[in-house]
């Protein structure tokens, strides 16, 4: 008997069931899974998700800017970086490489971020109004490292991609992509820790700043 068999057998014996896990028991578990029942939804999730998102970002210390269209993104990035006296070199996802970064006075590197890059620009799969959360799905063109390693993370969010709740985001993911990709990554504000004297410090191992740029 392997450890696996012993553990499963012990679960069965202690639950008062004999033998090995039967097809009907597996079918029951599968039917519960297939139902994908949602738990009780908080009423706050029913408000306008974009408004709610902006409010929640304030609580999380995520800053938000609302711009006219995608081509305005480099200018907003430049404004944000200048305001915080941050470096003018950014690394970003490939989908933003064609924007006119030079006109905004910025140098854009089209590659995944490394350990010493200071500003990372990413998009997201969608955002979640209920909690001010960004959902990033990792892939070759959308590396997670760019959202994680730099001290400043700038994320471009389409207002048309604002889910009310996490359940809505999962539903989109299932119908558009199927299964969750290897790295399914929810970001809610800059990284923080309260491990020394329960004092909240912004900027632990992840970014110190998260800036969201909303586009239509």
């Amino acid at each position: 008997m392997s450890a696996r068999d012993n553990i499963l057998a012990r679960i069965r014996t202690n639950s008062g069931r004999s033998g090995t896990t039967g097809e009907s028991e597996l079918a029951l578990a599968r039917s519960v899974i297939a139902a994908r029942t949602r738990g009780p939804q908080p009423s706050l999730a029913r408000h306008d998700p974009v408004t709610h998102f902006i409010e929640e970002c304030g609580r999380l210390k995520t800053t938000v800017a609302d711009v006219a269209d995608l081509s305005s993104v480099p200018r907003e990035v430049a404004r944000y970086l200048a305001e915080g006296s941050l470096p003018k070199a950014v690394v970003g996802w490939h989908e933003f490489a064609a924007l006119d970064w030079a006109a905004a006075g910025l140098a854009f590197a089209d590659r995944p971020a490394q350990g010493d890059d200071l500003v990372g620009v990413t998009g997201c799969y969608c955002a979640i109004g209920e909690t001010g959360t960004l959902l990033l799905l990792g892939a070759a063109a959308t590396p997670k490292a760019t959202a994680l390693l730099p001290e400043t993370h700038i994320c471009v969010v389409r207002k048309s991609r604002m889910a009310a709740t996490m359940e809505d985001a999962f539903q989109w993911m299932r119908s558009e992509i199927g299964e969750p990709p290897r790295a399914t990554f929810f970001v809610s504000g800059p990284s923080r820790t309260a491990d020394i004297e329960q004092t909240i410090v912004i900027g632990a191992h992840g970014p110190y700043r998260v800036h969201v740029i909303l586009i239509p």
Binding site: R59, G132, T133, R182, A183, F185, F186, S188, R192, G206
Partner: peptide, 13 residues
């Protein structure tokens, strides 16, 4: 209301 990072990992790269 939510933790900063919810990290779901499924399989290999």
């Amino acid at each position: 209301s939510i933790a900063n990072y919810l990290t779901l990992t499924t399989g290999v790269k």
